[in-house]
């Protein structure tokens, strides 16, 4: 599994990264949460608002800070 957080480094992006890390820890899976901060890389995912959560290359959420529980549910599916 590959988890990426798209965002240029604002407070919301950091919060989403922290929540994703917590979700991963609670699920007990060995996977690093990658941060994508370069704008040129971010636009390749065609998102219109950040922070965005990408799981295995698919955009799963944009423009909002999901709670750890919501991220766990996304990852579990």
């Amino acid at each position: 599994m590959r988890i990426q957080i798209l965002g240029t480094g604002c407070a919301k992006c950091r919060q989403l990264t922290a929540n994703a890390e917590q979700a991963v820890r609670e699920l007990g899976v060995e996977v690093a949460v990658e941060k994508v901060e370069d704008v040129r890389e971010i636009v390749k995912f065609h998102v219109l608002s950040t922070p965005a959560l990408v799981v295995d290359g698919a955009v799963r959420s944009t423009g909002r800070v999901l709670a750890p529980a919501a991220i766990k549910e996304l990852l579990g599916r």
Binding site: V39, V43, S49
Partner: peptide, 17 residues
């Protein structure tokens, strides 16, 4: 429309696209 200035660039690109 919900907007945060940190999303200005992806939004700009998405519109121009």
């Amino acid at each position: 429309t919900p907007f945060c200035s940190c999303s200005a660039v992806p939004l700009f690109l998405g519109f121009v696209e």
